[in-house]
Amino acid sequence: MRRALSILARSIAIFVPVFLVATFVTFALRALSGLSPASIQLGESATPEAIAQIEHQWGLDRPFLTQYFDWFGDMLSGDLGKSWYNGADISRLLAEGAVISLSVAGLALAIGVVFGFGFGILAALRRTTWVDRAITGFMTVVSVMPPFVVGIALVGVFAVGLGWFPSAGYPPAERGSARGWRTSRCPRSR
C-alpha cells in the first residue's frame, strides 16, 4: 500500500508541472502567433469590427496572463470552455470521444481475446506441427509490427476488400453498432 501511494505521489509530482508548462506554452504560442481564433471562425470576409466583437466576447482582448489564469480557474471548476472552431462544449466533445475510444478499445480487446484464445488452443492441440509454427510465426510478426501498420492492413482487408466495416467514421450509438456498420460500409469494389 505504501509503495502504491509513493508511485501515485511521484506520478502527480511529475504530472502537475508538465501540465502547467504545457498549457502555459500553448497559451503563449497562440498569443505570440498573432492569429485570431475569431478571424478563423468568421472566415476571410470578416470585418475588423466583427473580429473585435468576437474577441471581446471570448475575452481574447484581455492581457495574456489574465486569459490564462481565468481559463485555469474555469478548468479547475470543470468548465473547459467552448471550441473556437464550432462553438461546441469541450467537455461534451471529450466525453463523446471517450465513449467512442472506449467502445473501440473494448471491441478490440474482445476480438483479441477470442482470436488469441482460439489460436492458442489450436497451436497447443497441434503442437510441433506446421499449424503450430504457422500460428506462432504469424502472431510473432503481427506483434512486432507497429500498430498503425496492422491497422492499415486490417482496414484494407475488412473494410476495403471485404466491405464488412466502414473504412472511416463511427456510426452514432443510437443507430446501433451492427446497423451503423451495415449502412455506412463501403460498397465492395468489383
Rank of each mutant, 00 (worst) to 15 (best):
P172H: 08
A52Q: 12
V25A: 02
S45P: 10
V155P: 08
Y85E: 03
P37M: 05
L32C: 00
D89S: 08
I51N: 09
A50W: 14
T129W: 03
I111C: 02
P17K: 06
R127P: 08
V141C: 09
S39E: 08
S167P: 13
G169N: 06
H56W: 10
R2G: 07
R127F: 09
E49P: 09
S184G: 13
T129I: 01
A9F: 05
P147I: 12
Q67R: 05
R133Y: 07
S45Y: 12
R10I: 07
D89W: 05
P48V: 15
V21G: 11
R179E: 13
L94S: 11
G78T: 05
G97F: 05
E49V: 10
T128Y: 07
F24V: 02
W71G: 03
V18I: 05
V149N: 11
V157W: 10
R127E: 08
L8A: 03
I51V: 13
R92Y: 13
L29S: 03
T66K: 06
G87W: 03
R185P: 11
W130I: 12
R2W: 02
Q53V: 10
I40K: 08
A168K: 05
R175V: 13
R2I: 08
F64D: 01
M145V: 10
A38V: 00
R175F: 15
A173N: 14
I152G: 12
G180K: 09
W130M: 10
P48Y: 14
D79N: 11
R30Q: 07
L5F: 01
M1W: 11
L76G: 10
I121L: 02
S36E: 02
T66M: 07
P37K: 00
L8F: 01
S177K: 13
A13V: 00
G163R: 02
A134M: 06
S143A: 07
A105S: 07
P17F: 01
D79V: 10
T183C: 12
V114K: 02
E174R: 15
L107K: 05
G87D: 00
I7N: 03
G112M: 07
K82M: 11
P187V: 15
P48I: 15
V18W: 01
L125S: 09
F158W: 11
W58F: 04
L42T: 00
A178L: 15
N86A: 09
L42H: 07
G59N: 02
I14F: 04
P171G: 06
A9D: 01
T136N: 09
L76Q: 09
V142D: 01
R188E: 12
I100R: 05
W164S: 07
W181S: 07
T129G: 03
R179W: 14
L32Q: 00
R30K: 13
A31R: 06
C186N: 14
F69N: 04
M145G: 11
S36H: 00
R179G: 13
F64E: 00
V142H: 09
V114T: 11
G87E: 01
G87N: 03
G112Y: 00
V104E: 10
T140R: 13
W130V: 12
V150R: 10
F117M: 03
T136C: 04
G176D: 06
P146T: 09
A9K: 04
W84H: 11
A88C: 05
